[in-house]
């Protein structure tokens, strides 16, 4: 549906370059809904989980499925907010794995955001509030 005279890379006075948009692969997510806090059922109270210590979060990388992995893991992305250090780039390149495209990174990041919700919701752990039986 491009107009006559609109060429890649050319920006005529009457045309504007369209913004890129990726629909995403099947299985990706684009919506993260906030689940209500403290579902007050006996079942949710019984399933209180103390999170297993994960790798130091601040330095971890984010894999495509949103999980945290050691820094420099092939195919994983540095966390947003942490500038890529020179060594990171070298490691990524020497492993034959180029830094990801924006779309892949954003998909990984969305998965990461969604995973922040797993486990207890509302209060970081029910154990702070009360002692579940058994």
């Amino acid at each position: 549906m491009s107009e006559k005279g609109e060429h890649e890379g050319n920006r005529g006075p009457a045309t504007t370059r369209r913004r890129a948009l990726m629909l995403g692969a099947t299985g990706a997510v684009a919506v993260v809904s906030i689940r209500p806090a403290l579902a007050q059922t006996a079942a949710s109270v019984a399933h209180c989980e103390i999170p297993v210590p994960d790798p130091g979060r601040a330095g971890s990388y984010i894999a495509a499925d949103g999980s945290l992995v050691p820094p420099g893991t092939a195919g994983a992305f540095p966390p947003v907010g942490k500038p890529l250090k020179g060594e990171d780039v070298k490691v990524a390149l020497s492993g034959g794995q180029l830094p990801g495209t924006t779309a892949d990174q954003s998909r990984a990041y969305t998965n990461y955001i969604r995973r922040l919700q797993s486990g207890t919701s509302g209060f970081t752990c029910f154990a702070s509030l009360q002692m579940p039986r058994g």
Binding site: A20, L21, L23
Partner: peptide
């Protein structure tokens, strides 16, 4: 938009 991946299944999802 500049759609790189017009995949009907992805749009349905």
């Amino acid at each position: 938009f500049e759609l790189a991946d017009l995949d009907d299944a992805a749009l349905a999802e």
